[in-house]
Simulated assay, not measured.
Amino acid sequence: MESITIYPKSEKQKTLLKSLLEEMKVRFEISRSDDTLMEEEEFYAKIDRAKQQAKDGKGIHVKTKEELQAYLNSL
Rank of each mutant, 00 (worst) to 15 (best):
A70V: 13
F28Y: 15
K25Q: 15
A54H: 08
I6N: 02
K9E: 15
E2R: 06
V26T: 05
D35E: 09
A50S: 11
I47K: 04
L75T: 14
I60E: 14
F43L: 06
D35S: 09
S33H: 03
M24N: 06
E29Q: 08
Y44S: 06
T5F: 15
V26F: 15
D56K: 05
S33R: 06
Q52F: 05
E40G: 07
L20F: 15
L21R: 00
E41C: 07
Y44C: 05
G59C: 15
G57F: 12
E29W: 12
E39R: 04
D35M: 06
L20C: 06
E42W: 04
E23K: 06
E11T: 06
Q69G: 09
S31D: 12
K25Y: 14
T5L: 13
K46I: 03
N73W: 15
E40F: 12
D48A: 10
S33E: 04
T5P: 00
K46T: 09
L75P: 00
K55G: 01
V62G: 12
M24T: 04
I4W: 05
A45R: 10
R27V: 01
S31C: 08
E22P: 00
M24I: 05
E2V: 03
F43W: 07
S10F: 03
K25P: 00
E11D: 10
K9A: 13
E66N: 10
